[in-house]
Design a protein around this nucleic acid. Structure first.
Lengths: 225, 225
DNA sequence: ACCAAATCGAAAGTATTACTACTATATCAA
DNA sequence: TTGATATAGTAGTAATACTTTCGATTTGGT
């Protein structure tokens, strides 16, 4: 490829930019894989270091804490989502069609999403966001992290969806809340489907696209009720 | 009072029933207060012990881990919620009125909710559930905990709401998913409102009842769209 | 009133986590 | 050759999440 998408992440999240060195790239790559495989609580820098055949302290030179590494992934994910949305919704003017695109993007159902040989494993990242993302903000120090703008990509993406909802129905009063509801529910319904199935109407064997339909109806019905 | 509501919690959650002793009651009481004040991650059995002027090991005789204590609160909360719903919806037959009641109960807006002198501080518990509940199931061992029935009260409550939605519109295909969406969103919108306000249409100063209205519309609009 | 069992408190110990600090080496470009 | 940058290694700290042991006290039944 002659071009590449560069996802820009808040510089305050890292001590040294992981994009600029082999070790850094490995930390990010294998970090995603390991958190996906073993879950956030089991994952430690020590284990990551031993997998990379290096030392704990080397990793701390890139990220000052596990939490910051998670925030890095979280930022990266939403910036990348924003790009996907922008790219796929380009030249589309019909709000309903835009809503379709939003949902497909959120469910990782876009064709061009998996570029072979690319740095970040998007499917693993998606699973991490589903399972671990809320832990980035359900903390004592949300306000602090928010002031440092760590949630900006997430909020920006939210604002984009809210704008599309507003476009679809300018009279609707709760476009921001509906937007955050839909975004969170893409993840929650997916998680419930796999782990607490009695909380959903979707089965793993059934088509996941049913989730899209459920959420689509939720959005579309904000008009005339 | 000549009567009292007894909330029954899964016996596998504790080693010794905390209801049966002073120390046990104190663990539960002060546990709620402390988690509410300092957040789950800061909270430790050591700190709780020192507050109760006792020893860490004494607490471990009641709950084998912090996680189990959290699950205890979580179970207790949803069993109590179920009771509140049953009590308040008694003799009500109109599904729309039932939906109103569900939302008021979920938002802790029932009059009879705060009984002075009662063991459990419901407002603190409510805040804990908003902020920490998802941590009970967003773990490596969800499946295991689920098999041990630790999420049963939560799932039962969900099923009740789903049944009411079904009653309101028997043709709707996603009553379970809509139910879990609404329950989670009561908490999320509340949390966002207080901590990441750009993700909602509600301000702290404004009436929280707007959340009820948003969710009510969400449910009611599942008919005819 | 007495004995056994239940309960509690205190102390100490373990493995692991989430770091920090300090030092040493390898690479490469001016 | 110098020096900046990247990486590596060792050691150490404070705290967490427990477990174990042991002795003292309380309690409940006969």
């Amino acid at each position: 490829m002659a071009w590449e998408i560069q996802v820009k992440v808040n510089e305050d999240l890292y001590l040294r930019n992981p994009e600029n060195s082999e070790l850094g790239k490995n930390i990010v790559n294998h970090g995603v894989q390991m958190i996906d495989q073993m879950g956030l609580e089991e994952f430690t820098f020590k284990k990551l270091a031993s997998r990379l055949k290096t030392n704990e302290s080397s990793i701390y030179r890139y990220f000052e804490s596990k939490h910051r590494l998670l925030l890095y992934f979280f930022e990266w994910y939403w910036r990348w989502m924003e790009y996907q949305l922008m790219f796929n919704a380009n030249n589309v003017s019909d709000p309903i069609e835009k809503i379709n695109i939003v949902l497909r993007v959120l469910m990782l159902k876009q064709d061009n999403m998996l570029v072979p040989g690319e740095l970040m494993d998007k499917e693993a990242l998606h699973r991490i966001v589903i399972k671990e993302a809320s832990k980035t903000y359900l903390t004592k120090h949300v306000t602090e992290d928010n002031q440092k703008q760590f949630f900006k990509p997430y909020k920006d993406f939210n604002a984009k969806i809210a704008a599309i909802i507003h476009e679809y129905n300018p009279d609707y009063k709760y476009s921001k809340s509906l937007s955050s509801t839909v975004i969170e529910m893409v993840h929650y319904q997916y998680f419930f489907m796999q782990n607490l199935p009695s909380l959903t109407d979707f089965g793993v064997s059934k088509d996941e696209n049913e989730i899209i339909n459920f959420l689509k109806e939720l959005i579309l019905s904000c008009k005339r009720n």
